[in-house]
Design a protein around this nucleic acid. Sequence first.
RNA 1: CGGGGCAUGGCGCAGCCUGGUAGCGCACCUGGUUUGGGACCAGGGGGUCGCAAGUUCGAAUCUUGCUGCCCCGACCA
Length: 451
Amino acid sequence: MRLSNYFLPVLKEAPREAEIVSHQLMLRAGMIRQQSAGIYSWLPLGLKVLRKVEQIVREEQNRAGAVEVLMPTIQSADLWRESGRYDDYGKEMLRITDRHERDMLFGPTNEEMITDIFRSYVRSYKDLPLNLYHIQWKFRDEVRPRFGVMRGREFLMKDAYSFDLDEAASRAAYKRMFVSYLRTFDRLGVKAIPMRADTGPIGGDLSHEFLILADTGESEVFCHGDFMRFPVPGAGVDYGDDAKISAIMDEWTSAYARTDEMHDEALWDDVPAADQMNARGIEVGHIFHFGTKYSTPMGAKVTGPDGKDHDVFMGSYGIGPSRVVAALIEAGHDDAGIIWPASVAPFDVGLINLRSGDEATDTACGDLYSKLTAAGFDVLYDDTDNRAGGKFALADLIGLPWQLIVGPRGLANGEVELKERATGERLTLTLDAALNRLAEWQAETAARFGG
RNA sequence: CGGGGCAUGGCGCAGCCUGGUAGCGCACCUGGUUUGGGACCAGGGGGUCGCAAGUUCGAAUCUUGCUGCCCCGACCA
């Protein structure tokens, strides 16, 4: 993409209303625009990151055996009356009346609807286990939306729902999602820690939150240092092997990890002082096992091997991709701007032409742009006639992993500069050497973050 | 929902106390000189000062009401 053809409305100064760094940087980098309290438009750069996050989440859900569907944002109130939540949910639910005076709502979550889909089609235990998910916008009319997309009223959520014949099978489904979350956050390039959680209004008896560690996180985290050492299951993990999956979850739940809300000083004292890790985190995922809470009132049952009907056991599993985008910034930034993990960076390389209009420089940049694009790099080519300083500042702000800096001075020696955003390291290389270095990185990144 | 704050060109702000018809920086447009870490000169465009009512000869400025947004607390991906 040539910057001159792109839409990247950056701001030199952060709007006053933005308090936290991710919100400031998302506004400054032209990723989002606020349309109303807690409601945002996603501009091209932001959307690109959001889609990448979404795609990684999708791939790991699919790998774990979940099947994608897409349910509507608007739901009928009748469905929610069946579960009893229409009255329970309170003012967080945005209620809408259509032209026929029917009670509708903008879905804050989809347990009822997915249960309705399930009961409409599934009759036999032989069709289980089943896990259906979708990635769809939700709306929760928060009393106090804040911190940009970190806590918006409208937000993108991946929500998966598992259906099983009995408690044991349902718990196995829960563990598969648990493991898939470990992989998902690892591929997103962040350290996420699963913590025992309150089940809250969704109900149930087994629940974990996944928190991305970031110094500016909202929640205080107490966890054992072992979490930094537990191995993340690889792409080859066998989700069909219940024992193996169970063992992974056992390991990842073997050490103490709680947020301040669930913190237990007595248990904490049992953790050796050297292993006590006190950090901050951002909740980006939450999984629940809630048994027959919805299947019973809504009549979602299957015929078992015994020839009798059984209410199905369910769980739900959420990740908020829109919040993840903000959390990644909280976890990766410096004074100059964002530092994206390679797997979700909006572009791989920022190609900086230091002297647009200079024939030799333009030619060299055009050539590099073609070669990189052909080699599978997503390149943002700054071909504008801005000054060097402005281009550097922009590149740092939007946080692409690499900056390939091309100017007449270096070209005279057949050289360009390659700057790595994360480390700030700058290398002066020949054109070919620079391309080779990027190719190495591409291979490393594919190995590290690939599906 | 309780408490606090803010609202003046696209963004950041001053002006308000002590009413006299709106200003600064950045951004934008034109021309020129420039060009390796946010250039300089000259010229230019853009705001019924959130909305409504009131006080006054006169309101960005004073009064009242409303709306929007932000922050702190209780709740959430």
